Simulated assay, not measured.
Amino acid sequence: MKIDRREWDEYAFKDLFGDRDALLILSIPLSSNIYDDSWIWDGEKSGLYSIKSAYHGIKRDKEGNEGEDHSGFWRQLWRLKVPHKVKNLLWRVVLGCLPTKSQLHLKHVTIDMYCPSCNMVVESIYHNLVSYSFSQDVWGILILDVKVGDFEVFDVWLDAILQRFDHNRVGKITTVCWALWRARNNLVWNKKGVTVTALVTLALLCLENWTNAQDINFDVSIESLLPGDGSDHWVKPHENTIKVNIDPFS
């Protein structure tokens, strides 16, 4: 195109295309207005790029390629009444962003793929949070049969959990998943183990404290706390007694 005169370059088109294609292109009318070309983002009416519109565009493309609508699953996940760090963990797991050894291997990281806890099977998120014997002991204390099928894929398992259990149980299950992953990291990076009882206590206290913090009528004054009630708030020991504070993961 001859930019200065707003005309098609007829000779250039005839050199590049066949007669038929060249005639079709040359028949396209050009605008009489002269404006400089500029970049336009079609994800926003303003034409300006935004992270939000890019996220929704990628999500639509992914759902279109997979041929399934996962919007209901995501709505259920984001509406869970659990701490945000629990939702963040689940989100990373479902997107395949959690650095288990099997995931690191897929990213071409040179590392053995065995579970750091049992050193017997390839480490996957499903193994860590559901099928591993330690995890099964945790679920046993909660009296929850979370092995709802032979899925072996965490996001499919999580979807089944969301469909099977009520909100209270789903809250406990997902928060325990967070505690299990936290325990795994503490073992890998700090060489510290944890007992089944301590892990369950941590998870339930985390969920309880977060739930209480959402209740505007909850009394958070120190007078409302009783010694030994399981709260993570520090309470003065009784007279002539010694109080020992410990980390449940130590």
Results as ranks from 00 to 15, higher is better:
D155N: 14
V200S: 02
I125C: 11
K191H: 13
D19C: 02
V244C: 14
E63A: 14
L80P: 03
L180K: 05
W234F: 12
L30P: 01
D166V: 07
K59V: 12
I58Q: 12
D150A: 08
Y55V: 02
R60M: 12
L162P: 11
G230H: 06
G57C: 11
D9G: 12
V200E: 01
L77N: 01
F17S: 03
T110Y: 05
D166K: 10
S31L: 12
G43P: 02
P248A: 00
S71Y: 06
P227V: 05
N65E: 10
S131P: 01
L204H: 00
L207V: 00
E239K: 11
V196D: 08
D150V: 11
L77K: 05
L23I: 04
H238Q: 14
V153T: 09
V156D: 13
R79V: 08
W8L: 03
V109F: 13
H233K: 14
S50Y: 06
P83N: 05
C115D: 15
I141G: 00
N212A: 07
V156I: 14
P99N: 03
S135N: 08
G230S: 01
L90M: 11
T241G: 08
L199G: 04
V156F: 07
K59N: 04
Q103V: 09
G57A: 06
D42N: 14
S32C: 13
M1R: 07
V93C: 09
L90H: 00
A160P: 01
Y114V: 10
L89P: 03
L199W: 06
L162R: 03
F13E: 07
M120V: 05
H56W: 09
P237Q: 04
P116A: 06
V153P: 09
N65R: 15
G43H: 05
I222V: 13
G18D: 15
